Computed example of a mutant assay.
Amino acid sequence: MTEQGFATDTVRQVSCEKCPLRLLPTFRAFENDELAFVSSFKRGELSVDKGATLLSEGSNSAHLYTVLAGWGFRYKLLEDGRRQILNYVLPGDMIGLQGSLMGEMQHSVEALSPMLLCMFERDRLMELYRGYPGLAYDITWIASREERMLDENLLSVGRRSALERAAYLLAFIASRAQKVGMDGTGKVEIPITQQHVADTLGLSLVHTNKTIRKLIDRKLVQWRDGGCKVLDIKGLMALANWSGLDEGVRPLL
């Protein structure tokens, strides 16, 4: 069976009961009946390669997804091909909810690295709302969190200087990655290019390169072919005048 043109695993490799993300203190625990429903709600797993388009703007999908492993990003394109990256997706984030509630996707999602996604049947979403108010609240919280992040990103693009924008973006991504255990070496390594940064911040590639060079000179980040290694999250936060994430324990579907 295929979804969005990629092979899917019909036999799940990771059970909901033994999900490694549930071991992290950042995610709330399920009630027993919630766990049983989510386990039956899960259709299987989808593995995708780096650079694959998971969902396309204007498309419909029979499934919702939760990122189990890997990195991705949401974006929109203008007719002439110019791209605006809206946000980044990390383990624990949900993909495709917008298409479920609005009929079709209003943005696209691409994999920044190989990814593993949990697939859920979209047609059973109303069953979740009817029978599991705690899970329904979780989905509302997830949507509100996405709105909050977009608010902060819009503030950054609209009012921060180029240097502050870059510092905020890298601190924001690295802070989220830390929360979900993606700093195994002690430092967060983000698999993005300077073009990704430019398309997120609304800057030219030349301006982005000069701005990142300033962050490198301040020893806040290192840049290599594989992406960005964040050396000093607190230093980036201070430079961006950003107080950091404050969301406590969050839902995981």
Rank of each mutant, 00 (worst) to 15 (best):
M1R: 12
M1S: 11
Q4K: 14
A7E: 15
A7N: 14
A7D: 15
T10L: 15
V11M: 12
E17W: 09
E17Y: 12
C19K: 02
C19F: 06
L21F: 03
L24K: 11
L24H: 09
A29V: 04
N32V: 12
D33R: 11
D33T: 08
E34F: 03
E34Y: 02
L35Q: 06
F37A: 06
V38G: 00
R43P: 05
G44T: 01
E45L: 09
V48F: 07
V48P: 02
K50E: 15
K50C: 12
L54N: 07
S56H: 10
G58K: 05
Y65A: 10
V67T: 05
L68A: 09
G70D: 10
G70P: 10
W71S: 06
R74C: 06
K76W: 03
K76H: 06
L77D: 14
E79N: 09
E79K: 10
D80F: 12
R82C: 03
R83L: 11
I85M: 09
N87D: 14
P91G: 10
M94V: 09
G96C: 07
S100R: 11
G103W: 15
G103A: 15
E104K: 10
M105Q: 15
V109M: 11
P114H: 07
P114I: 13
L117F: 08
C118R: 05
M119D: 02
F120N: 00
D123I: 12
R124Q: 06
Y137S: 08
W141Q: 15
A143F: 13
E152H: 03
N153A: 07
L155Q: 05
L155E: 09
S156M: 13
G158P: 00
R159S: 12
R160I: 01
A162G: 04
E164C: 05
A166D: 04
A167Y: 04
Y168A: 00
L169R: 02
A171M: 03
I173P: 01
A174N: 00
S175G: 06
G181F: 08
G181P: 08
M182L: 15
G184T: 13
G184K: 09
V188T: 00
P191H: 03
I192Q: 11
Q195L: 14
H196I: 07
T200Q: 14
L201T: 01
L203I: 04
V206Q: 12
H207N: 06
K210T: 09
K219N: 09
Q222L: 08
W223I: 14
L231F: 01
D232Y: 08
I233A: 05
K234G: 14
G235T: 01
L236R: 00
A238G: 11
L239A: 01
N241F: 11
N241L: 11
W242Y: 02
D246T: 14
G248H: 02
V249Q: 00
L253E: 02
